[in-house]
């Protein structure tokens, strides 16, 4: 089984599920794989299986789109690199009290990614060795993205408004054509 598709399929089936993987090849022949796990906790065995394929954790994307919110879920996509092929494994979590296991024991570079999950989203990472804030100043409330998304309801253009008021009053009428 030299084909990366077969190897990934076999590896992920070690989770006890037979996940459906969608493979796409771009015009240069670069392959990306996309799959969803039935249970969030399966990300741990999935990661263990992928490390066996010399996989590397590229990054982790948490997101909360309007459509997912309507379904009552949030999503996290884990992006793995397999020597140039990118595999995205997505899990779904509840909106409230979302928890994922830390992958730091398998991929130590999950560390910062998971700290970001905790400070930007309302997600708990269980078993994280160092769950401190990473980027956000202590004066900023936690789960910053959570409060600010969706953006349709968030219109904090206060700084812009103040500046433009000055621009229009100080130069607006003076230069009227």
């Amino acid at each position: 089984m030299n084909d990366v598709k077969d190897r990934v399929q076999a590896a992920l089936s070690q989770t006890g599920e037979e996940p459906l993987i969608e493979w796409r090849s771009d015009r240069k022949g670069v392959l990306t794989g996309w799959c969803r796990l039935g249970e969030a906790a399966l990300i741990l065995p999935a990661a263990e299986a992928l490390v066996g394929l010399e996989g590397r954790l590229s990054t982790i994307t948490a997101y909360l789109t309007d459509s997912a919110r309507q379904r009552g879920v949030r999503e996290i996509a884990y992006h793995f690199d397999l020597d140039g092929t990118t595999l995205t494994v997505t899990i779904e979590l509840p909106l409230e009290d979302a928890r994922v296991p830390s992958l730091t024991m398998i991929f130590r570079n999950a560390d910062w990614n998971e700290r970001e999950l905790m400070e930007l989203y309302d997600i708990q990472v269980t078993g994280h060795p160092d769950p401190r804030r990473l980027f956000l100043d202590k004066s900023i409330e936690p789960a910053a993205f959570e409060r600010l998304i969706p953006f349709s309801t968030f219109t904090n253009g206060a700084a812009s408004k103040a500046l433009w008021n000055k621009v229009m009053t100080m130069s607006g009428t003076e230069k009227a054509a």
């Binding site: 100043d137 600010l148 904090n156 253009g157 700084a159 500046l163």
Partner: peptide
């Protein structure tokens, strides 16, 4: 001067 492209971010306090 104005915050440029970063104006109105929760993490930016300028100008």
């Amino acid at each position: 001067i104005s915050g440029g492209v970063f104006r109105d971010s929760y993490a930016v306090d300028g100008p």
